[in-house]
Amino acid sequence: MYTQALNARDDAPAIRPAEELEQEARFQARVDAEERIEANDWMPAAYRKTLIRQISQHAHSEIVGMLPEGNWITRAPSLRRKAALLAKVQDECGHGLYLYAAAETLGVTREELTEQLLSGKAKYSSIFNYPTLTWADMGAIGWLVDGAAIMNQIPLCRCSYGPYARAMIRVCKEESFHQRQGYEIMLTLCRGTPEQKAMAQEALNRWWWPCLMMFGPPDASSQHSDQSTRWKIKRFSNDELRQKFVDATVPQADYLGLTLPDPELRFVPDEGGDASKGHWAYGEIDWAEFKQILAGNGPCNRDRLAARNKAHDEGAWVREAAMAYAEKRRSRQAA
């Protein structure tokens, strides 16, 4: 999801000492028993590595995610919307902070993770490489992007790694207002003037498919999810979550009076029995576009990274000043 490009690689060496195998077996038993793994507990090196990547990728996504919506804070069309949007983007910053904090419990520093993001080494969710072009995009993002995020985040509240799970619980508590805010914006637009409704439809047309891509490649082409599943870091498959998302969203779009930009969308009833139960089958996703986004060729990849680099570079003197003052104060107190 926010970690869609992640492949948990089982890169343990071929021959390992008996003690390590025993520890790993005990570790797996704890995970199987739904016990929480905490920061100082023994864990396989690969588990630690995968988690660092997954959690930091998630954190990077939150921070970069501030930019597309931050683009509209100064143009929010009412004071209520202005405050809500500023609070939402601030929450995203907070989520990034909670997640960096969780990642740091695994022995990596915020500075290292920041360097990975700014240098382009680390990935973040593809969705934030799309531009926000109208006010209606704020509605579409809250409704769809946050909606998709919530689908992924709720199961993560039960993930095996304690600090990550606890961060996710905090995130989920805050996230629910985000989706409601977005949907309310869409509702207001759809009930408004013809221009507003057209703005809403146009935004949905642009965001729908990228949101479906957020869940990552189809299960069939996903290489190494088994390990993440066994370690209870990933609790549902990409396709499962994507289907859940589509099923939840179709009636919501219907209520708004908007048309999802998928001519192949059709309801497929479950076999045998209640015809009202089933799933919404959707059309082909353009995975070529997804690959291009991941390769750095999306509309906003370069701008997003440039913005984060600029903030970091221009803020260096501030961070240095704070540390210099702290050092001076220590010396004065020691004297």
């Binding site: 921070i63 202005k82 405050a83 500023l86 910053c93 960096y100 913005a307 903030a311």
Partner: peptide
């Protein structure tokens, strides 16, 4: 609010947003 997403540190982004709010 113009600082949102551009502050010298994430913790300061939070602070400036709080003051703005």
């Amino acid at each position: 609010s113009e600082w949102c997403g551009h502050a010298p540190a994430l913790e300061e982004d939070m602070a400036l947003a709080n003051i703005g709010l």
